[in-house]
Amino acid sequence: MDSFKNVTSIVTPLDKVNVDTDQIVPKQFLKLIQKSGFGKFLFFDWRYDENENKKPDFVLNDSKYDGSKILVTGDNFGCGSSREHAVWALLDYGFSVIIAPSFADIFFSNCFKNGILPISLDEKTVEKLQQETRPIEVDLEKQTIKTLSEEISFEIDPHKKKILLEGLDDIAQTLQYEDEITEFEKNSKIPSVL
């Protein structure tokens, strides 16, 4: 996994709550397993009509958001099916930061496995960022989001921060601690369940 670099980009506002992974990648694409190329299926049913023509009123089809790396969206983003394809599609499309008031659990965890930074902020701040038309800068090291007018800080678990900054996946991460794990295994006496 590539290490996470600071991101400066305009934001793509997706003003919807409870966006589920069926919307992020519809089921017909689940059979495919290459990790790259999923970007074209991202939000497929929202982006394209039945003849696969772009729907002009959907935000991703508005050229002013071309090249955006930051998606700013509503509460409980990524709920529903555990499909990791959802994260692959967002990443392949070009998003590396997702900002929302909250995320669904499995989706949140899948983001870190693939190098996407999910940031939870309070609803008011998220609404404000959705209206931001100028580029913003996300600095993971400092845990800040800079707009032209202010600096917003965000929380992240230190372990997850390290994973992204160093581009480790969990397996690589664990291999770093092989000795400690062996030690843990040797010493742990696992009591039987009462």
Partner: peptide, 28 residues
């Protein structure tokens, strides 16, 4: 699979994982 939660009805701690996490568990 996200509905792995189902089997908690048998008194297990049952939860869903993404593909990378499942791969991790298979190895570790």
């Amino acid at each position: 699979d996200s509905h792995t939660n189902t089997t908690g009805a048998l008194g297990a701690f049952a939860c869903g994982l993404g593909h990378t996490d499942v791969a991790y568990v298979l190895l570790n």
